[in-house]
């Protein structure tokens, strides 16, 4: 069973060159990924195919969440394909802090599309990479919880829980 992808997309009122720069440059990343504490954002980037990005962003509780990315395809202002993992402070791949059977590696594809009039669509698509059956099931459960209309139906269950 190949799990269905998880996709998040957004249309930004900004030209594609700016969206690309802001999304891929660590100096910008610090400002939007860690808006309350940009100085706390740590980044070691080697932005080329085969290169890696080891980063750490402070969470709401102050604890730093580390991640690592390995770039597989870079087409400026068009597409970035990378393998994404949670990591420790030294850049070693680590399990998801809340769900240990979350896939260790996620293949992430970001597509950038110029919609004209200074607007840009960015779509991020995730699928498990080199995943075990258990990891795929964990991913599929989370995907189903967020997409496919089930997130709305989930409201029914929340309403039920609220009434207990």
């Amino acid at each position: 069973m190949t799990p269905a992808p998880l996709t998040v997309s957004r249309v930004f009122k900004a030209p594609i060159a700016l969206v690309w720069a802001v999304h891929t440059d660590p100096k910008h990343q610090a400002k939007w990924l860690s808006p309350d504490n940009p100085e706390g954002y740590l980044s070691k980037l080697d932005f080329r195919v085969g290169g890696t990005h080891h980063y750490g962003a402070p969470g709401p509780d102050g604890a730093i969440m580390y991640g690592t990315q390995t770039f597989r395809e870079i087409v400026p202002m068009k597409k970035v394909v990378l393998v994404q993992s949670f990591a420790d402070k030294d850049g070693n791949i680590a399990p998801h802090p809340m769900a240990p059977t979350w896939p260790r590696e996620i293949l992430s594809t970001t597509d950038y599309e110029d919609l004209g009039n200074g607007t840009t669509r960015m779509a991020v698509t995730w699928v498990p990479f080199n995943a075990t059956t258990v990891e795929e099931a964990t991913f599929e459960g989370a995907r189903a919880g967020m997409q496919g209309g089930w997130d709305h139906q989930f409201g029914q269950i929340e309403a039920y829980l609220a009434g207990l």
Partner: peptide, 24 residues
């Protein structure tokens, strides 16, 4: 867990959107 998930996806998009409009 789902809330956490939304934070790392949708909220990042929100933050990016805010930053882009501030820059512009």
């Amino acid at each position: 867990f789902m809330d956490h998930f939304r934070v790392v996806t949708e909220q990042q998009m929100d933050q990016l959107e805010t930053y882009l409009s501030e820059l512009q």
